[in-house]
Design a protein around this nucleic acid. Structure first.
Ligand SMILES: [Zn+2]
Ligand SMILES: [Zn+2]
Ligand SMILES: [Zn+2]
Ligand SMILES: [Zn+2]
Lengths: 142, 142
DNA sequence: CGAATAATGAAAATATTTTCAATAAGAAAT
DNA sequence: ATTTCTTATTGAAAATATTTTCATTATTCG
């Protein structure tokens, strides 16, 4: 997700483009790996950016709700990475090293009717994650 | 999930059936609604059961890994309910009241091959949740 | 430049995880 | 059935992580 797209998204949703939000976006954009809230905080402090840890939590929640970032929950570790694809997609997480693979497809929407029929719920969203072992970690499994 | 099934599952996996674990299982079995770790703790204290909050967290994690319970994350609230079906299945969570609907189907396993082909990952697990509004809450949406 | 109000951040409140010494469950022997 | 042994599990306390509160600040829109 590039900077232009990021700014447009906020304008469209009537969200304010605050300094903290932009700092966090930039930090994620420059990162090689997914980052935890604490890692983001420390990294920004090191660069003398004035920001509160609370804002990091809040911004990450917001970004997630906008599908801008993917929240990677692996055991008790929580990290975030910027989504590269702007279209709806899912991920596979390595149970060993935490690396994230991108899946550029989703056939779930076709299920919504089935879900509504069997439960009466109106479906508005879904969450799908795969877990497994990446090419690097697979051989290490006994 | 009934008590016999519960005990067999533990024996099969070489897990010890400790008193705290059984207390938590019973509490979930008797509950009408999903319970948070804190609610479980308070409820057991009220019944004069000796148990530590830490054990509740640990047992719930264990139960989840055994697919005995479903962890319902809705905003910042976390609750658990015992799974009624012993076969693999998924849930739909009401964004308004938190009620959980059970879906007794899953066609995801057919995706695993596709996931492996596109990412090289060995797939061992997946997580799929639907979100929406239940029959009761749907009319309240504007 | 002012409103109007969404967003921030410090501090307090909660929630969750980790550590580690003590305990209890299960297996095996008596 | 009781004792003994091994080791998984517990729980109190400390460490971390996350959320809430609320007074202050910064954005955006005339
Ligand atoms: Zn890996
Ligand atoms: Zn999808
Ligand atoms: Zn509802
Ligand atoms: Zn499934």
């Amino acid at each position: 997700m590039n900077t232009g797209l990021f700014k447009r998204l906020f304008k469209d949703k009537n969200l304010r483009m605050s300094h903290p939000r932009f700092l966090i976006y930039q930090e994620l954009l420059g990162a090689q790996n997914p980052l935890s809230p604490q890692e983001l905080y420390q990294s920004l402090l090191k660069k003398r950016r004035k920001i509160g840890l609370t804002s990091i939590y809040r911004s990450l929640d917001l970004f997630e709700s906008l599908n801008m970032v993917f929240k990677i929950i692996n055991g008790s570790s929580v990290k975030y990475k910027l989504c590269e694809l702007k279209d709806h997609h899912h991920h596979i997480i390595c149970r060993s090293c935490g690396h994230v693979g991108v899946l550029n497809f989703c056939d779930i929407s076709s299920w919504s009717k089935k879900v509504t029929e069997s439960t009466g719920y109106q479906v508005v969203d879904h969450q799908l994650n795969f877990y497994g072992f990446c090419k690097k970690c697979k051989p290490l499994q006994k």
